[in-house]
């Protein structure tokens, strides 16, 4: 078994052996399902067909705050508890340790996001019946796929930032306001929208049908998969930053 596989296996043991993993991922599911249910109950037919995606995406996009907190805390707790010293003594290759941690966090988040997204889709379908977004349409599949990629990559992005900042609290206190509050609210202001629309939490909005290119208020200058490509770039940049910071600094 290669050193990377051993290290990733150890990261998986770390994840599943602490209570907070079960607690936060359950909370993620609860918020996504609960808000999906609430919005689905208020859903009225007659608008554009793609509006049927709103009950699914609204719950998931709110619950992403919980998922991101999970990803950040997974990294931050190594520093707050001091286990980072034992981790690096056991896996002295910084690149290997970082890759193993990001793989374990990424796969766990991807699995949780997939299961919850499918569950939310099923719940919304039960509530609004035939008006639900049909799985026979490509735009439904595209939105669900895009939402899953968005949740997964955004979590890896924030986990990498946490590796650079070495703290759950510092990371969340910077990322939550910048990425999730100001850009969703202030992002609609004409003055800053040309910049804010490229922020990592915003670039998935087109594929999830939370906005469309050309919309006068919420419009974007890129298409659905271009948005995902931008998110991939953000994630890649954060991974490089996290890796460089791991490599250079003393434990």
């Amino acid at each position: 078994m290669s050193g990377f596989v051993r290290a990733a296996g150890a990261e998986w043991v770390k994840l599943r052996s602490v209570r907070s993993t079960v607690v936060t991922l359950s909370l993620f599911a609860f918020v996504a399902l609960g808000l999906g249910w609430v919005v689905a109950n208020g859903f009225s037919e007659g608008g554009p067909a793609a509006d049927a995606l709103l009950p699914i995406m609204f719950g998931l996009l709110t619950a992403q705050l919980v998922l991101v907190t999970f990803a950040v805390a997974t990294v931050g707790s190594e520093f707050s508890t001091g286990t980072i010293r034992a981790s690096l003594a056991a896996v002295p290759s910084r690149g290997r340790f970082f890759a193993a941690k990001m793989t374990a966090v990424g796969l766990t988040v991807a699995a949780a996001a997939l299961v919850v997204e499918v569950a939310v889709y099923g719940l919304v379908r039960v509530v609004i019946g035939d008006a639900a977004a049909p799985l026979t349409e490509w735009w439904t599949i595209e939105a669900l796929l895009g939402g899953w990629i968005h949740l997964t990559l955004l979590s890896v992005f924030t986990a990498s930032i946490a590796m650079m900042l070495r703290s759950t609290v510092v990371t969340l206190s910077i990322l939550l306001p910048v990425l999730f509050l100001s850009s969703q609210g202030l992002g609609n202001l004409d003055a800053i929208r040309p910049v804010v629309q490229y922020f990592p939490d915003q670039v998935g909005m087109v594929i999830m049908h939370m906005t469309v290119p050309g919309d006068p208020r919420f419009g974007r200058d890129y298409g659905p998969w271009e948005g995902i490509a931008i998110l991939v770039l953000w994630t890649a940049a954060a991974l490089v930053g996290g890796w460089l910071s791991m490599r250079r600094r003393d434990a």
Binding site: R6, V13, V18, R19, S77, T81, G82, T83, S87
Partner: peptide, 21 residues
């Protein structure tokens, strides 16, 4: 004191053991 507060003694040794096979 470098321990995760809610990880058990056995699980702490288990992840360490995994890293080195």
């Amino acid at each position: 004191g470098d321990l995760h507060p809610t990880r058990s003694v056995r699980e702490h040794l288990r992840w360490l053991a995994r890293t080195n096979g």
